[in-house]
Design a protein around this nucleic acid. Structure first.
Ligand SMILES: Nc1nc2c(ncn2[C@H]2C[C@H](O)[C@@H](COP(=O)(O)OP(=O)(O)OP(=O)(O)O)O2)c(=O)[nH]1
Ligand SMILES: [Mg+2]
Ligand SMILES: [Mg+2]
Ligand SMILES: [Zn+2]
Length: 581
DNA sequence: GCCGTTTTCGGCCCGACTGTTTTCAGTCG
């Protein structure tokens, strides 16, 4: 019996194949082809199995005949002979050694062949016994670095990616610590600037009149646990908490090319550099250099880099993979949403259920943010654990909302509910009051461990409900804590699109749900979106921008996001749902 | 292994830092 191979699993297998091939000494281009295919599969919203069925898998960038056939075998049979054969040849534990800093494929191959080392424990033993230092290319210093890497790995248990919001706090501390450098310009690049939901490290780009001092200050920041590497132009450190920090120092006149480089993604950089080569220039973080040895062109701002290649400036959130340059050349970049475009927040909790702020406090917070309306959407009765409101309490809440709306008019308060989608797909909408509700959110907190088929059926039923306007946090994932539910998202999104049921991008930074890659699929299916703070206290309304980032990363045009609509349009849209069924 | 408004074969981004090396390979960003 074999398990269903989902996209993530398939991507992992392709990455393992890449690692194993690389250890065997295969061509880096072949190895990169597997890595690129894996990366592209991760960004697919559609299930591989359905793409194998209709053959569209072969149309995915970076997937040709060989890899396409392997994926086909993998998802139809649940196993892949080529992978199993490779796994026989290359011990799996060698792939763990690859995770030790400074242990790349060449060195892993060397210790395996010459010292018969296949595990981290054996590597540690070989290092301590002095055998490792005798290998060509190794010496006392590299052995010490490797041992330190092994120790750090034991200490940190898991070197994992951290949520964007946690990185934010650390980044602010680092920036503060560098204040006062002469002529300082600083920006966080990498996945942080691209607003990826998690970041693997923090990448700081700095220019200063005193570059040496910049490196020095960075390496001696109080939150630095260890300096991993330090030169005149860059440094890498391990912050306390085992998150890595990379610093790159650059002349102000080269800021544009440097920021473009350090923002990535790697694939985007490669594509930019390939495009430059086609135009006869070699692009690096320093400049464009004419390949024929002619002039060097410096770019002080990022816009100039893109302009030089005939491209509009590309938003960092769009710079994943190789899509952005292709679409930019065709003039197909999305008209993305900005936080200022949001006129309201359609998902807010209060003291009435499991929130910690009153309706009035939430209104005040919304007003400060410049919002013109919010929807109070406390939980429905079925979610008793979260203090769900029965009909009587909901009626009382409505009285309070009317009252708040009378007292002030700057923020219009909508009457809503976050209604539980029950195990059989019926929605816990309070029948008596349904005509008085402006907005009904349907969401699922109970029986989340049902099968893929059952979850899909539940959502389809909820989407077909004439009163359910928004489906909130569809996958139910909690970053770093809980995997999202499995469901046939393609079918769900098609039905949401057909019925005009709005899909939420939950802006809570531990949810970000829909996640970017699924929101992108829903966008292709023509769905509408709402960005909801799901605030349970006033301060959480400040988190809306995380949802904005997800929407941008999903290439959604702002007119598909209902927060940007005039309120009347949204209310009309909600009222007319039965016409679209 | 993938890919192609100059290609179906011959390319595939470019540079910093480290340690070990007598001139550069390996790793990483
Ligand atoms: N041209 C080029 N640029 C690279 C390469 N590797 C990394 N970069 C650039 C682009 C990356 O966004 C940036 C920072 O590298 P990181 O390894 O920190 O990656 P990134 O921040 O994108 O993702 P992360 O969340 O840290 O794993 O450096 C490369 O091989 N070539
Ligand atoms: Mg990074
Ligand atoms: Mg980095
Ligand atoms: Zn909620």
């Amino acid at each position: 019996m074999s398990e269903r191979v989902d996209n993530e699993k398939a991507a992992q297998i392709l990455e393992e194949i890449a690692d194993m091939l690389e250890i065997q000494g295969e061509s880096v281009f072949k190895v990169n082809a597997y890595r690129r295919a894996a990366e592209n599969i991760r960004s697919l919203g559609r299930d591989l199995s359905s793409m194998v069925q209709d053959g569209s898998i072969f149309a995915v960038e970076g997937i040709g005949k060989a890899i396409g056939e392997k994926i086909t075998e993998l998802v139809t049979k649940g196993r892949l002979e080529y992978y199993e054969k490779l796994s026989q040849e290359v011990p799996r534990s060698l792939l763990e050694i690859l995770e030790i800093p400074d242990m790349g494929p060449k060195r892993v191959k060397a210790v395996w062949e010459k010292l018969k080392v296949t595990t981290i424990e054996e590597l540690e033993e070989a290092a301590k016994s002095g055998r490792l230092a005798e290998l060509p290319g190794f010496g006392p210093k590299s052995v010490a670095r490797i041992l330190a890497g092994i120790e750090e790995r034991k200490r940190a248990l898991e070197t994992h990616r951290i949520p964007l919001v946690s990185a934010w706090i650390l980044a602010e501390m680092v920036k503060e610590g560098l204040l006062g450098l002469p002529g300082l310009r600083i920006e966080v690049g990498g996945s942080f600037r691209r607003k990826k939901e998690t970041v693997g490290d923090l990448d700081f780009l700095v220019s200063s009149h005193d570059p040496e001092a910049a490196v020095e200050r960075f390496c001696s920041l109080p939150m630095v646990q260890k300096v991993l590497l330090r030169g005149s132009k860059k440094a890498s450190v391990l912050f306390k908490g085992s998150i890595q920090g990379d610093l790159r120092v650059i002349e102000r006149s080269r800021w544009g090319t440097a920021l473009q480089y350090f923002t990535g993604s790697k694939e985007h950089n490669v594509q930019m550099r390939e495009l430059a080569l086609k135009k006869g220039f070699s692009l690096s973080e320093y400049s464009f250099k004419a390949v024929d040895g002619g002039d060097e062109i410096l770019c002080a701002e990022e816009e100039e880099v893109y302009a030089f290649l005939g491209l509009p400036w590309i938003l960092p959130e769009l710079r994943e993979g190789r899509r952005a340059v292709d679409e930019a050349l065709k003039g197909n970049l999305p008209n993305v949403v900005n936080e200022e475009d949001l006129k309201g927040d359609p998902h807010v909790h209060t003291l009435w259920s499991d929130g910690f702020s009153s309706i009035e406090e939430m209104v005040l917070s919304a007003k400060e943010k410049g919002l013109r309306w919010i929807a109070i959407t406390d939980h429905s009765a079925a979610l008793a654990v979260a203090g769900g409101l029965d009909t009587a309490r909901l009626r009382s809440q409505m009285v309070e909302i009317d009252d708040v709306n009378r007292k002030q008019t700057s923020v219009r308060v909508l009457k809503g509910v976050e209604a539980e989608i029950l195990a059989d797909g019926t929605v816990d909408v309070p029948g008596d009051l349904v005509d008085e509700l402006d907005i009904v959110i349907g969401s699922l907190h109970l029986s989340m461990r049902q099968s893929r088929e059952e979850i899909t059926r539940r959502y389809l039923k909820a989407i077909r409900h004439p009163r359910v306007h928004i489906i909130a946090h569809p996958t139910g994932r909690l970053l770093g804590q809980r995997q999202g539910m499995d469901a046939d998202w393609e079918v769900i999104f098609e039905e949401a699109s057909r019925t005009g049921t709005i899909l939420e991008i939950n802006a809570n930074p531990y949810r970000l749900d829909l996640p970017d890659y699924l929101a992108a699929l829903a966008n292709e299916k023509g769905c509408l979106f709402s960005i909801g703070s799901d605030a349970h206290r006033t301060s959480q309304m400040e988190l809306l921008h995380f949802g904005v980032s997800v929407a941008r990363r999903a290439w959604i045009n702002k007119d598909r996001i209902v927060n940007t609509w005039e309120l009347d349009k949204l209310l009309d849209w909600a009222k007319s749902k039965h016409d679209r069924l």
